[in-house]
Design a protein around this nucleic acid. Structure first.
Lengths: 345, 345
DNA sequence: GGCTGGCACTCACCTCTATAGAGTGCCAAT
DNA sequence: ATTGGCACTCTATAGAGGTGAGTGCCAGCC
């Protein structure tokens, strides 16, 4: 793709520069770089190289007499071909695993934990997109009468997912009536796709009285709506507060934009969507995301799989100047662990 | 309690000062105040009054040559006896009501809505403490077999609350077996207190085989734990981001402290607890809260009732310099509406 | 050709000073 | 008791000068 344009030496210097900048957050001067790097070059030489890098758009100086700072492109090159990722310590992996397994065996809280973990391990904001579940098979349905005309619907879907909702009916139904309805649905449709079921229920007029049919349809309807909503437009964020700590977020206005983005959700979802196809870690750096408020932020994502099928994306949002070498493995491992936790559930 | 120390005139001036300061956020000078108030006094006279107020600790000047600013004590006096509350426009009440009733007939999302509404109507952070439910009667319990040794427990409690959890058993149970267990529990204990039930189940050895008893106990145990957790230490916050907008929060460190307080929860809960006994609106101003990070914030709370029993508290957190006359009725009405929504549920 | 030392230059940042403006405190007069 | 007047205090703002970090470029060296 990108052919080798940079000399070995230039690459090593760029790498050293980015690493240094990530560490200190200060523009890096030629002098510092000369000391930092084992190449034993004089500052003057380094200045020449820097001038080249600047021309290529990989670094800039905030003003004539400051050191150099990586640009988005510079970071890009860095993460794509220069970065050496620190493997997680065994200890850390185990802690992650324990926390995830310790979580309730319930999808919601599992995702919540994943998000919190991402946040606390990276000290940035963790983000988990809710798993998409186009296939949604009805495994079992139950109706329980509540007081008045209210009926509790319990759906077990995809073997693991439990949903319940209260629906209103126009008259009171006995326990027996409701059991008959449930029994009918279970017998006929267990294992079928939810929408399929709803369509068939609506079609098969002769099978049941109209009012009962309407209850069943309503129940399936509700379930469907819940699912759609969850699948389409939602994600969990944890530890946004961590972002307050970074000096690149010192600008209150920036912060507000960012928090707004979390609330609007649309833009972020769009980003997450883009990375759902990529097979591994994906990184969006600064302006690459396209979203205004995110221009000083990077997003590191990884899709997670259930039974070898990608069902969602998770990741971390933080300042562009983040320790990619630490963050990447955390995101990577969390995605894998979450996947397996969801599979074995 | 506080006897009338202030002259009529002093009170009117203090009121005008606080109102003006709330509007503009700038220290108010004697000149401005002279123009603002219909008393037709000269600035010099007002200066004399201000000197008195300052001595009483009701106002201060940030420096020798700035106007005056209310102190916490000044705000206190203001809200306690000077404030004229603006009634909500009928329109607003209706909107609140509609939004609350439109919410799913489910406690969780209802509280969530209340919190969001508080936040969006006041442009500050909304806060809702989860209702305490010491009484927790079992209305109905159901067991459904899932794959493997997993059993889905569905509990209907207090007529409205639905909980479900998956528990593991040591062997597989048939639907019929589980139905028998549920039937037994429903028949014997429907309407009884949850803990009572658990105790009795554990005691009554002769009624069922040991393994079944253990399943029932586990189920009740789980429910109990969930309840306890929810009741004791939780509240919902919405719209914290709104706080970013206020200039008194411009200090990033302040903000961080504040957000930390939301996460730690303990201190905030303590505050909410303090106001659960008070019958009506309660207001904590600045340092009164005792919590460090909250010293530039005020908290306006109101308890909400279900069937004439106070079950929780809700309110709003914002800068001390907030429009109390607007906020108070919003909090008040929301508390009442939430109460009635929960009652009629 | 590539590397280096040297030197002039630029720019952010800090401090110091001067000035304008807002508002007070106090006093003497009504 | 209230008021006008006046000196005073303090902040905010702008400009001036100094400092230091770091660059760009050039001439010399390997």
């Amino acid at each position: 793709m990108t052919e080798k344009i940079l000399s070995e030496r230039a690459e090593r210097l760029l790498k050293a520069l980015v690493e240094r900048y990530i560490r200190d957050g200060q523009p890096v001067g030629s002098r510092t770089l000369a000391r930092d790097t084992p190449l034993s070059l004089s500052p003057a030489t380094i200045r020449n190289v820097m001038a080249d890098l600047e021309e290529m758009g990989l670094v800039t100086s905030p003003h004539t007499s400051a050191g150099r700072v990586p640009t988005a492109q510079g970071y890009r090159l860095f993460v794509d071909s220069l970065l050496t990722v620190k493997p997680l310590r065994r200890n850390t992996v185990e802690r992650l695993q324990k926390e995830l397994e310790g979580a309730q065996v319930e999808t919601g809280s599992l995702l919540q934990s994943a998000s919190s973990l991402l946040s606390s391990f990276t000290h940035m904001a963790g983000i988990v997109m809710l798993p998409r579940r186009e296939v949604c098979t009805l495994r079992q349905i139950e109706f329980l009468p509540l007081g008045g005309n209210r009926i509790l619907v319990i759906l077990i879907l995809n073997d693991h997912e439990v949903q319940n909702r209260v629906i209103m009916s126009d008259r009171q139904y006995s326990r027996a009536e409701l059991e008959r309805m449930a029994g009918y649905l279970n017998q006929e449709f267990s294992g079928a796709d939810l929408r399929e079921v709803r369509a068939q229920v609506l079609a098969s007029i002769e099978q049941a009285r109209a009012d009962m049919r309407s209850i069943m349809a309503t129940a399936l309807d509700v379930a469907d709506r819940v699912f759609q909503q969850e699948a389409d437009d939602d994600f969990l964020v944890a530890g946004q507060d961590n972002l307050l700590g970074y000096q690149e977020m010192a600008d209150i206005d920036k912060l507000r934009q960012l928090f707004e983005a979390f609330n609007t959700k649309r833009d972020i979802l769009h980003l997450l969507d883009r990375s759902i196809e990529a097979d591994g870690i994906q990184i969006f750096i600064g302006e690459e995301s396209g979203r205004a408020g995110l221009d000083t932020c990077s997003l590191v994502t990884a899709p997670y799989k259930v039974d070898d099928r990608v069902v969602g994306v998770l990741g971390v949002i933080g300042p562009t100047r983040m320790a990619y070498d630490r963050v990447i493995p955390v995101v990577d491992v969390t995605a894998k662990l979450l996947g397996s936790a969801l599979s074995s559930e």
